[in-house]
């Protein structure tokens, strides 16, 4: 057969195949975007136009169910919202940092290492973490008799500057001879968590460059008294500036012994 004859033979197949596929497409569009949404919307008391818009994806919701509404007012646990611009300023040292830091040395030490273990060390802490806590003290999301009035006198740019200043300081050096050998279950909690209690490993957020929420502080080289006190404050909800109860729900599952031993672990460990 000549090629021209083959073409003649194929033509009706091509025509019919195209017509059927085109017809099915048109049928599907009409059924899926118009008929079914309107029928479903009719049953749920939704007007046809809204139902079609929902089916097409122009407005939220399903054509067959009323869209839930919420009249809840925002009750933020913290006013801090991270933006690229804010995070960028928290990586830039300024001259102002050292000046503002002079107001901190009495409790937090000349180089950000506190002499009283009840106070946290700031040296080497992440600037993002220090910024969030100072900001929270300022706005009242976190309360402390000493820190609240101090933070309230600070301007936004001073908070940023002092956070960067302490982040750049060298961390407390640890004495290898005092490193506590801690129990196996505590190390497991730190490194692997406890799936049965839905407890994520401490280090999945608090380890160095671990990922997790950006504002999580690093815990090693911190003071044990301070760590244990904060875990207890989270547990009884007297401290509640953790976004979405991350630390409140974790600490509620910890026993007293675990809190003490975890604080001891992070205060003395040489591993992280």
């Amino acid at each position: 057969m000549k090629p021209a004859d083959l073409d003649d033979l194929d033509r009706p197949w091509r025509t019919w195949a195209s017509l059927i596929i085109g017809g099915m497409l048109a049928f599907s569009i009409v059924m899926g975007f118009v008929v079914i949404p309107v029928v479903q919307g009719y049953g749920a008391g939704i007007d046809p136009f809204t139902a079609i818009c929902r089916a097409v994806g122009l407005v939220p919701g399903s054509p067959s169910t009323r869209q839930p509404t919420s009249a809840a007012k925002a009750e933020p646990t913290t006013q801090v919202a991270w933006s690229t611009q804010l995070l960028r300023t928290l990586s830039r040292p300024t001259d102002m940092g050292a000046v503002v830091a002079e107001g901190c040395v009495a409790c937090h030490g000349q180089r950000g290492i506190a002499s009283d273990p009840q106070n946290p060390n700031l040296a080497g802490q992440s600037a993002v973490a220090i910024y969030k806590q100072l900001h929270d003290y300022k706005t009242g999301s976190r309360a402390n008799d000493i820190m609240t009035p101090i933070a309230q006198t600070l301007e936004e740019n001073q908070i940023r500057a002092v956070s960067v200043h302490f982040a750049a300081a060298n961390r407390r050096s640890l004495d290898p001879t005092t490193a506590e050998v801690v129990d196996e279950d505590i190390v497991r909690l730190v490194e692997r968590g406890d799936p049965a209690r839905a407890l994520p490993a401490c280090n999945s957020c608090h380890g160095f460059s671990a990922g997790g929420p950006i504002e999580t502080p690093t815990l090693s080289h911190q003071n044990r008294e301070y760590l244990a006190r904060q875990l207890r404050a989270f547990r009884d909800s007297s401290r509640r500036n953790d976004i979405y109860t991350r630390m409140r729900s974790v600490s509620a599952k910890l026993t007293d012994r675990e809190i003490n031993r975890l604080a001891e672990f992070y205060a003395t460990t040489l591993q992280y």
Binding site: A72, K73, Y244
Partner: peptide, 8 residues
């Protein structure tokens, strides 16, 4: 966390 619906 600052908006109404998904506030804690």
């Amino acid at each position: 966390h600052l908006t109404g619906e998904f506030t804690e």
